[in-house]
Simulated scan of single mutants.
Amino acid sequence: MPSFDIVSEVDEQEVANALNQARKEITNRFDLKGSGAELDYERPTLHLRANDAFKLSVIREILLGKLARRNVSLKNLDIKAPAVSSTGRASQEIVVRQGLDSDVARLVIHAVRELALKVQAQIQGDHVRVTGKNRDDLQRVIAALRAKEFPRALSFRNLRD
């Protein structure tokens, strides 16, 4: 019986490449020299630090721009509020989300059921598996889900018979 998986994945290598590009730009920018700007990546969290909140916001925009250019969906990022210490030093965390959480998986299953096709969708861990007898129905499901908006970026893998 044909099936495919609906997943929400972020390519870790692309995140690392974007982080390296952002570090290079920060070291070369005149307005950020000597700002104490730091970017660290401890999976799954990106840590941003700077001497003040304004420079932190500049660093964040540089990083988000580099991630977007490397086709890392910003929907999969959980951006925490910046924290400013009493000395003025600012820090922020950005969590890179992998997999579908149960709320998003339920939204996906509901969207598949609304199509009224002869397919079944079920949650299997951090992804949703869709099975059906007709491969054309599965391709219609993929097209319909690509057209809809979800809180996480969806990708499709393992379309097999």
Rank of each mutant, 00 (worst) to 15 (best):
N71Q: 09
V130G: 12
E114L: 09
F54G: 00
R157T: 14
K66F: 03
D137L: 10
R89M: 03
L159H: 07
L74M: 07
E42P: 08
I123G: 07
L39C: 12
N28D: 12
Q120H: 06
L117N: 09
S57V: 08
D52H: 10
S91D: 02
V112S: 10
T87M: 05
A81E: 11
I142D: 01
L19A: 15
K24E: 15
S85R: 00
K55P: 01
F150L: 10
V112E: 04
V15W: 04
E93Y: 03
E114D: 15
E93N: 08
L56H: 08
I142Y: 09
L77M: 02
A37W: 05
P82L: 00
A50Y: 06
G99K: 04
G99M: 06
V58I: 09
F4E: 07
R60T: 00
F150N: 03
L107Y: 07
F54A: 06
D52W: 06
D5V: 05
V72E: 00
S35G: 09
S8I: 09
L39H: 03
E12N: 04
Q98A: 06
V15I: 14
E12W: 11
K24S: 12
I59L: 11
F54S: 04
A22N: 08
S8D: 14
I123V: 15
R89G: 05
V58H: 05
N71T: 08
D103Y: 05
D101H: 06
K24N: 13
V10M: 02
D126P: 13
S155A: 14
V128S: 05
V104P: 00
A116M: 15
V108N: 07
R135K: 15
T87R: 01
N20T: 05
A111D: 11
L32R: 04
H47T: 06
R29T: 10
N17M: 12
D103T: 04
L145I: 04
E25V: 06
N158D: 13
S86H: 03
L46W: 01
A116V: 14
V141S: 15
Q98K: 04
A50G: 04
T27A: 12
L138E: 08
A121D: 03
L115Q: 07
R70P: 02
V15P: 05
E114Q: 09
F4I: 14
K33Y: 15
K80F: 10
V10W: 09
L154I: 10
A37G: 15
N17D: 13
G36M: 00
L39G: 01
N28H: 12
R135Y: 06
V112Y: 08
S73H: 00
I94L: 01
G34K: 07
D137T: 05
N134Y: 12
I59W: 03
T87Q: 03
G36L: 08
E12Y: 08
V84R: 00
R43L: 09
R157P: 01
E61P: 01
V84W: 04
F150Y: 06
L115G: 11
V104Y: 07
E12L: 12
G36I: 04
A90I: 04
F4M: 03
R49E: 11
A83L: 10
N17I: 13
R70G: 01
R70C: 01
G125H: 11
D103C: 03
R113N: 15
P2C: 13
E9A: 15
L39Q: 02
L117M: 10
R70Q: 07
A105H: 05
G132D: 05
A105S: 11
R49H: 09
